[in-house]
Computed example of a mutant assay.
Amino acid sequence: MTATGAAPVDGYDLVIFDLDGVIYLIDRPIPGAVEAVGRLRAGGTSLAYATNNASRRATEVADLLTGMGVPADADEVLTSAAAAAAVLAERLAPGTPVLVVGAEALRAEVRAVGLVPVAEADEKPAAVVQGYGPRVGWVDLAEAAVAVRAGAAWVATNTDRTLPSPRGPLPGNGSLVAALRTALDRDPDVVVGKPQPGLFSTAAARVGAARPLVVGDRLDTDIEGARRAGMDSLLVLTGVSTAADLLAASPAVRPSYVARDLGGLFDPAAVVRLPDVGGTDPARDTSVDPAGADGWRLTGDGDRPRLSGAGATLTALRTLCAAAWSGRSVQGVRPDGDAARTALRELGLPTD
């Protein structure tokens, strides 16, 4: 549970949600998401949605959410597509051609800021903007490569390697950026979306929030972006990042809290506050003792430490994080007893 016994949402004046892997998977709501958002709205908490997915405009995202039973307004939605178009508009004169690699939503955002979306390098674009689109193919990447080699600036909406789906992780925009990076032997000039803090800071500024909470499923985008923006964060285990990823997390991508799902926003027993090992925030609980924390003990040295005791599965994860983040190996941790075996299994960690 949290250090004070209170739910994380208490005391925050804005909750900023990632979408894919947090609210929905592709086009299916994640169990409990509709109820969680409805409860926040009923309580008067300001909401925002910040997504790296550049395949939908804000109005389309709002319509999708509303159709799932999550009423949303377009001005609550921030997309990497709109952010990328804004960056281009700051750098280029109106009417400048921009080669768009991505979905129609990205082309529409480029058009909306007064630039001209094109599809071929022969149209001499001043920039290439690359975002996720389910129909992006070799021809699109080839045109982008030619344009960048001819001097066009290269702007990526995001570099997420994967995106979550009901069938498991699928290639994201970062995988397509990697293909172009390999062909060009260089990185994009600008990456706009998370983990850059812009989407989060814009969301907070829109409503004048003083204490926002970011909720995401990815350590390398949502959580790192929150830390860069100076905001607390909650990692939910309904999308990309796993318990194993959390144990291996560097300080730059460690969340304030972890929960299985959005129920952790309200139920103190369904969330834990993670230690700020080696951190400088006096408000963060740093008192976790891996030798006997929250009913769990981690004993033994070397490559195969042992987890014993009993308690909530998430507090076992907190104990393991405290050890791992303090420099102690938890690789191949073995269960000592049925309770530990069950906890490790529920966390998706090896049990033998």
Rank of each mutant, 00 (worst) to 15 (best):
A6T: 11
A6M: 10
Y12E: 07
L14I: 14
L19A: 11
D20C: 05
L25P: 00
I26Y: 01
D27M: 05
P31F: 01
V34C: 02
A36I: 07
G43E: 04
S46L: 09
S46W: 07
Y49T: 01
N52H: 08
D63M: 11
A72D: 01
D73H: 10
E90D: 15
A93L: 15
G95A: 10
G95M: 09
T96W: 12
V98E: 08
A103L: 00
A105Y: 03
L106N: 02
R107V: 06
E109K: 06
V110L: 08
G114S: 09
E120A: 05
A126Y: 03
A127Q: 04
V129T: 05
R135Q: 00
W138N: 02
V139I: 02
V139P: 01
L141K: 00
A144I: 10
A147N: 10
A150T: 07
A150K: 08
W154T: 12
N158L: 10
T159D: 08
R161W: 14
P169Y: 15
S175N: 11
A178I: 13
T182W: 15
D187A: 15
V192G: 11
P195K: 09
P195E: 09
P195H: 12
P197Y: 15
A203T: 10
A210N: 14
V214G: 10
G216S: 08
G216R: 07
L219I: 05
E224S: 10
G225F: 09
D232H: 13
L235W: 10
L237V: 05
T238Q: 10
A244F: 10
L247D: 03
A252C: 04
V253Q: 15
A259Q: 04
D261A: 00
D261P: 01
F266I: 04
P268L: 01
L274Q: 07
T280E: 15
R284G: 04
A291V: 08
G295N: 03
W296L: 02
G311C: 08
T313W: 06
A316Y: 13
L320P: 04
G327K: 12
R334E: 08
D338M: 00
L344W: 01
L349C: 01
